[in-house]
Design a protein around this nucleic acid. Sequence first.
DNA 1: TTATCATATAACAATATGCTTATATAAGCA
DNA 2: TGCTTATATAAGCATATTGTTATATGATAA
Lengths: 106, 106
Amino acid sequence: MQQTVVRVEEMASILKLLGDRTRLSMMALLNKTDCCVCELVELFQMSQPAISQHLRKLKDAGLVKETRKAQWIFYSANKDHSLYSFIQAILSYLPEERKETTQLCE
Amino acid sequence: MQQTVVRVEEMASILKLLGDRTRLSMMALLNKTDCCVCELVELFQMSQPAISQHLRKLKDAGLVKETRKAQWIFYSANKDHSLYSFIQAILSYLPEERKETTQLCE
DNA sequence: TTATCATATAACAATATGCTTATATAAGCA
DNA sequence: TGCTTATATAAGCATATTGTTATATGATAA
């Protein structure tokens, strides 16, 4: 099974995004389950604008996608990203998300 | 074969370091071969202090190690780092180093 | 010892980052 | 329509980052 090849430039910009505690945990969470902004605000104990700004960066890079459901916007990992397998490989090194955490977003 | 578990905090700080074009290429190179500072200055076309400062950060995080040989200090990836397998996994996604490049450091 | 080469470090400037607060937009509901 | 909830965005500020120039340190060679 052939592994994807990632250009240095592109890898650096992905790692830079993931090189932030909040965004990294966010990606790990959104890789398991969908969450709306207000749930992330709760979970990460951060202001709504701060959360939105992190999501914006992840979205601009194509790492997450959004789906509107009534007044809520749900975010999730974009599994169609051309380098998703690379991102997945990184996230796979993190400890298992605790069920309580994952379940908060439902 | 059990995969290492990396704490979010620690992973974020490693990814932050690698989330820079210069340091990422440096790590990829030093993972293949040892280089002294002046060789890196040549290769990356950057000032000597700039290179030294990047190396300092990598060294402080334990990602590279140095060996003095006469007046030169050779740097290389620290394969004894407790998370080396994780770092190796990331670097393995980069394209093969061109031989010409690797050979410059000998 | 003195000069030279290789490297590190300090001080500084420009720019980037990640919050904050205030405000805009968009959907749902009375 | 007007109010409320959910989210995005703008502006501003404090701090971090990354380069620059100048200088210090350490090893070798004359």
